[in-house]
Amino acid sequence: MDSQPVGLSRKTVLLLAIATGIIVANLNYIQPIEGLIAHHFAISKAHVGVIATLSQLGYALGLLLIVPLGDIFDRYHLIQFMMGLSILSLLAAFWSPNVLVFTVAAGLIGVTSVAAQIIIPYVAYLSPGIHQGRVLGTVLSGLLTGVLLSRSFSGILGSLMSWQLVYLLAAIFSLVLLGILHRYMPRDPRGHQHRSYGSVIGSLPHLFISQRYLQSAALNGLCLFGVSNVLWSTLAFYLAHQYHWGSSIAGVLGLLGVTGVLFAPIIGQLVDKYSPRLTIGLSWLFSALAFVIFWLVGQVLVGLIVGIVLLDLGTQFSQVSNQAIVQSLDREASSRNNSIFMFSYFLGGSLGTFCSTWAWSHYGWHGVCLVAVGFLIIALLGHWIMKEPKQLHRLDVDE
């Protein structure tokens, strides 16, 4: 039975926004310290790029196979269970005596970090529809803050002391958060749902095929997050090559994405009031302008700074707009819809990481920018062919 939204206090929304940030940060710690990891294990930069890709593929796998469980089980307990497994994975990465153990730990960190994507449809489920965009914008601003601070934290700490301590401290942060969520996170009003895991997973293809707005959001998310990872997977290499700077600078530059954090609630309000098609178009424009700047004047620090601000702004416009579309679909399938969208989203991130690190190894910065152009062309074609709704409303899966 479909219960009505119960609403969330501002304090609760803020807590869950912080939670998504801390949880998703675990996935991104590796990016600024790839060079340090490569040196520690005596492997190539391309090899550590594969490890980073496996971590994101693990996240994508968790999105596909674990996040749909939110439509069956009590999300209050499911989120805490996944966080417990995440803490164990972080401790394994800290302890790793060789590259094989670290690779397995990195993959498990990716899988278990999907707890953040169980929180997002949970928040949407508990929020009245007329305020859903604003609430989602706030929670997603927390998620982006976690991504940004993870880059800075990891890069700066890695330059000052052993990179392994990044994962030990992440485990401690997660343990503290787990205790707070256990005390203050809202209980799931649905309780346990009487559905089999097989039927829920088996319904994913039908949900994707039957919902054209979900298809559009998935394609756009794949391309725009792929573009974002094209930069962040290679920025540390570019800074070392162009300026002879270490991982700490890559971490500091990550703080420039605070623009996207500040704009996230505003983006949510724009989606509620106007058109997600408009805000998705803006996301493509900002991302395209960013890589024009990277390609033409990326060798100048000011060019890098302006481009990073535009890119993170474009990424946030895409994320908030697409999530608002996805969460406006069938409430009883909210976790599965989010699973499909975020699987596509992080599949794009994995492709962006893999293709850009390969392009850097063979063609340098120009090759990296060409990879971004490919993603942007596909996103633009999809934007016109697979049109998003002009206005949001409650949509049925059969629409």
Results as ranks from 00 to 15, higher is better:
Met1Gly: 11
Leu15Met: 14
Asn26Phe: 02
Ile30Ala: 09
Ile30Phe: 01
Gly35Ile: 10
Ile37Leu: 15
Ser44Gln: 05
Val50Ile: 15
Ile51Ala: 00
Ser55Tyr: 02
Ala60Gln: 05
Leu69Met: 11
Ile72Lys: 13
Asp74Ser: 09
Tyr76Arg: 14
Trp95Val: 12
Thr103Asn: 08
Val104Phe: 15
Gln117Ser: 07
Gly137Asn: 06
Gly146Asn: 05
Ser150Trp: 03
Leu168Cys: 07
Leu177Phe: 11
Leu178Ser: 11
Gly179Ala: 08
Ile180Tyr: 03
Leu181Pro: 02
Arg187Gln: 12
Pro189Gly: 07
Gly191Lys: 01
Tyr197Met: 10
Gly198Ala: 12
Ile209Pro: 02
Gln211Cys: 06
Leu219Ala: 10
Leu224Asp: 08
Leu235Asp: 07
Leu235Val: 15
Gln242Val: 03
Gln242Ile: 05
Ile249Gly: 00
Leu255Arg: 00
Leu256Gln: 09
Val258Ser: 01
Leu262Gly: 12
Pro265Ala: 01
Val292Ile: 15
Phe294Asp: 03
Gly303Asn: 02
Leu304Gly: 01
Val306Ser: 05
Gln316Phe: 01
Val326Thr: 13
Val326His: 07
Arg331Glu: 14
Tyr345Thr: 13
Phe346Pro: 03
Ser356Tyr: 01
Ser356Pro: 05
Val368Asn: 12
Phe375Lys: 08
His383Gly: 07
Met386Pro: 00
Lys387Pro: 06
